[in-house]
Design a protein around this nucleic acid. Sequence first.
DNA 1: TGTACATCAGTGAACGCGCGTTCACTGATGTAC
DNA 2: TGTACATCAGTGAACGCGCGTTCACTGATGTAC
Lengths: 205, 205
Amino acid sequence: MAKRGYHHGNLRQALVDAALELIGAKGPTGFTLSEAAKQAGVTPAAVYRHFEGREDLIAEAARQGYEIFADLMEFAYESGQPSALSSFEATGRAYLAFARKYPGHYVAMFESGISVNRTPELAIVSARANGVLEKAAAALSEYAPPGKRPPSTMFSAHIWAMSHGVVELFARGAAGSRSPFSPEELLEAGIGIYLRGLGLVPPDE
Amino acid sequence: MAKRGYHHGNLRQALVDAALELIGAKGPTGFTLSEAAKQAGVTPAAVYRHFEGREDLIAEAARQGYEIFADLMEFAYESGQPSALSSFEATGRAYLAFARKYPGHYVAMFESGISVNRTPELAIVSARANGVLEKAAAALSEYAPPGKRPPSTMFSAHIWAMSHGVVELFARGAAGSRSPFSPEELLEAGIGIYLRGLGLVPPDE
DNA sequence: TGTACATCAGTGAACGCGCGTTCACTGATGTAC
DNA sequence: TGTACATCAGTGAACGCGCGTTCACTGATGTAC
């Protein structure tokens, strides 16, 4: 694991970790392959023993992010069971928590311009993450007054959009923080109001 | 206005336009000062007669974006009067319409990393845009059942977040479009549900 | 209307830089006997 | 345990590239008389 002279030991992951740190700190633009190599204590050329190039390294960082993300969502979902409502709310919170705790992964996944369809593995793991939220939405939507309820995919898209918007506008960059509320309280309140609008939460709870 | 030999005529704006086109097409990363100059039919060095450098050019593009954005929001707001509700809904729609119609401006404003506090003018015009949405939210929130209503700044932040999330996740890049719904219908429905949750729209309307 | 001159907006060559990538290489590791 | 050798993961030098920026310059425009 530790570096041992000429041979690194676990360079592949060390490069991914360096990339994640740089991406998180400077955005996808600021990230360079050379710098990641340097940070891992290695020549830029060494990167090519493990990745096809810069893009491939970013894609692997994103893939690991989706993996963690999906796990986190699943865990949140299950920890809220058997209540459909608390399961759903937990996944919403997990989204924000993930963005906070893994900024490098988050940026690699959603702001680096890496397409989810770049490789089959990436598509699969992203679909898995997506699936958890949709499952939670579907379960919850059964409790909604029939006639009125939107398709659960739309429902989950709304929550995803609001979560993402909160992250991008209010959780990132302390520089231009544009709101007097914490992202967590903003998102929590927003989801609460939304669910009330669906008739899933009693008006006065 | 047209190019007339050695002197361009209106190079400053031509550069901004070129920058907007490039930023919209390739993202903030893909944009280079040299390419913008080339597209305007001019040497890169000429840019320095009108801007301090690359950043300054992007900032001006963003500033013009905020200007248009604020105007559009104001117009939407007024066109919905005297109903507080329709005013509010109109500003929500205007957000998405702006993102669609002015992708270069949108990216320069929200994804280029240019801080709103970079210059006083930028701060002022962005506050103006922000103000319209908050005004609409404040007017509307008077109709909400008292006790329960959130501060109107939070309220407008929610709508802003959802709008931004929809734009980023579902309106950009036909490549990875992740939803079976159009962004417009997604946002419209989302805002509708949210407003119902606030008690601002009767449950069965 | 014509000339002299100041101002201004461009040119084009040059710079240093760091990038991603390639290549032949070499030092370290692991395995067969 | 010791030696020979194949494999592998790194080096380091080099590449071509396009970038943002600077500089002394020059051609075009506008103004004063």
